[in-house]
Amino acid sequence: MFKRIALFLATNLAVLALLSIVMAVLQNYFGVTLGNTGGLLVMATVFGFGGSFISLMTSKWMAKRSTGAHVIDQPRNESEQWLVNTVRRQAEAAGIKMPEVAIYDGPEINAFATGPSRNNSLVAVSTGLLRAMNRDEAEAVLGHEVSHVANGDMVTMALIQGVLNTFVIVLSRVVGRVIDSFISGNREGGVGIGYFVIVFILDMIFGLFASMIAMWFSRHREFRADAGGARLAGRDKMIAALQRLSQTYGESTLPKTVQAFGISGAVGHGLRRLLMSHPPLEERIQTLRNAPLEQVRGTVVS
């Protein structure tokens, strides 16, 4: 936990330092007055990280509400008892507090994990998964989701999104002011209507590149969670679960807010792939098959 806080502080300070240098260069060497740069940095940090952390802190509540998930407080049947026992055993092996376990109504084979921390999380599976997968395959899927929690992926994703949001907010306004000053010839700090149009366009362009970076990390963490699932349930079980997904996969019915945390998600090719949260299932299966045996043994957290 302390390591992640230190990483957050160091990354945020590095971002602010870099942006301060860029602004100083523009002001001192190009004669462009950028206005209240300190206020801009504060505003960008508050809005950039604020939205990410509000989403993180409310993630469990939003997931339950948006999917209609039923949290298993007292198992009603043998299937629910098996789910709770399996997650408890895997959580103990991963060194995390027992997550809440839930079932949501969904026709596709899917599951997701969310929550504000490793010790305050939710693992949910779809009714479609319970119908279509055998116990070995379902165990591997649960291991995949528990690994997401143990790896701190929800927190790390919020940090990355906060940094990217800060960059987008600041760079779009700095670059917008520079472009507007050269077009209008006004370098004394005033802005015209063109500035706001330019900033709007730059927000979309920089936001697209930020999404590509965030989705690259999302795909990377899926490989790590697959390896974690293999450590908790067994490599053969994890491969079998991914193969089952590849045979029956359809469009996810999960809400957008939790789709990136599902066991599977939409994939694409070419440029479209850059905006996908999950790598192709064939690549995930091949990566597990090629992984050295020691990489699918031992602890979950790397």
Rank of each mutant, 00 (worst) to 15 (best):
F2N: 12
R4V: 11
L16N: 13
I21W: 08
V22E: 00
L26E: 01
Q27R: 06
G31H: 01
L34C: 03
L34V: 09
N36R: 07
G39F: 06
L40E: 00
L40V: 04
A44Q: 09
T45G: 11
F49Y: 15
G51K: 12
I54N: 09
I54K: 12
S55R: 15
S55C: 12
S55D: 15
L56P: 04
T58H: 12
T58F: 13
K64C: 08
R65A: 04
R65V: 00
S66K: 08
A69L: 00
A69P: 02
H70Q: 14
D73H: 14
Q74R: 13
N77K: 05
S79T: 12
Q81I: 03
L83D: 09
N85K: 13
T86M: 04
T86D: 09
V87L: 14
Q90E: 08
A91C: 09
A94R: 05
A94C: 02
A94V: 05
G95C: 02
E100K: 10
I103N: 01
Y104R: 14
E108M: 10
I109R: 01
F112D: 05
A113S: 12
T114Y: 04
P116L: 06
S117A: 12
S117L: 06
R118T: 01
V123M: 07
V123P: 10
L129I: 09
N134C: 11
E139F: 02
H144Y: 09
H144E: 07
E145F: 04
V149Y: 10
G152T: 08
V155A: 11
A158N: 09
Q161C: 05
G162Y: 12
I169E: 05
I169G: 03
L171S: 11
L171M: 14
R173S: 15
V174E: 12
V174M: 14
G176Y: 02
G176A: 05
R177Y: 01
F182V: 15
I183R: 02
E188L: 01
G190P: 01
F196G: 05
V199Y: 00
I201F: 11
L208M: 08
A214H: 05
W216D: 10
S218I: 06
R219H: 08
F223V: 10
R224C: 01
A225R: 15
G228H: 07
D236F: 03
A240K: 09
A241R: 03
A241I: 02
R244I: 04
L245V: 13
S246V: 03
Q247C: 01
K256R: 03
F261M: 14
I263L: 03
G265E: 05
A266M: 10
L271E: 06
L271K: 09
R273N: 13
H278V: 12
H278M: 06
L281D: 07
Q286V: 00
A291V: 07
P292M: 05
E294L: 03
V296G: 10
R297I: 03
R297A: 04
